[in-house]
Simulated assay, not measured.
Amino acid sequence: MGYLRRLLGFDHTHKKRRQFNTVELKVRMDCDGCELKVKNALSNMKGVHSVEINRKQNKVTVTGYIEPRKVLKRVQHTGKRVEMWPYVPYNLVMHPYVVGTYDKRAPPGHVRNVETITAPSSAMKEEEKYTKLFSDDNPNACSIM
């Protein structure tokens, strides 16, 4: 009977497995006490495998069978200002020195993780004007406007 219940999806005793995640946070820490407070809060959390803190970069890396939202909430309960790690290596971004992406406070070799950057409409029109001059069908031909 139990096999049939599981087969039909009526078995509620089966728990959903958690995935092994790495969560990176930006936490403002000024002293050893701040660092210890954050580390103790995260180390006592169920499913945490390791906690690494780089106080110079204000970066906390947590690995384990955890949910990012719960890790963020746990650090918020310590009273520290926290956000998800906003930086990525600059070679992963198409235009790393665009206004929304470049950040002076980012660690060396990193820029803000901006998924979509919208260019001004006048720049797009200018770019379209030049790309329409050439033909992919006949690379030796061009049109003069």
Rank of each mutant, 00 (worst) to 15 (best):
N44T: 05
P108R: 13
H110Q: 14
F134N: 03
V114R: 07
Q57R: 12
N138H: 08
M124N: 11
Y87R: 06
H110L: 13
L36R: 13
T116D: 06
Q57F: 13
M84H: 07
G64N: 09
V88F: 07
F134C: 02
N58H: 10
T131K: 12
C31H: 07
G2P: 00
V75W: 00
G33H: 02
E115H: 14
F20H: 15
H14F: 06
E35W: 00
T63A: 11
D30I: 08
V62W: 01
E126D: 05
A106I: 11
H49R: 09
K104A: 11
G2V: 06
L133F: 10
H110F: 15
R112A: 08
V48S: 02
V82R: 03
I66C: 00
T61S: 09
S121N: 08
P86K: 04
S121R: 14
R112V: 08
L7R: 13
A106Q: 09
V51W: 01
D137M: 07
T118N: 14
R55C: 04
G47P: 03
E127L: 10
Q57N: 15
W85A: 05
L8S: 06
E127C: 08
K129M: 14
N44C: 04
K70S: 06
S43C: 08
T131G: 04
Y97T: 13
I144A: 10
S143T: 14
Y3C: 08
D136S: 11
E24H: 02
K37P: 01
K73D: 14
V98D: 04
K73A: 15
R5A: 12
L8V: 15
E128C: 05
T61A: 05
R81T: 14
G9C: 10
R18S: 15
P96K: 06
M84A: 11
N44Y: 01
T78A: 04
F10D: 14
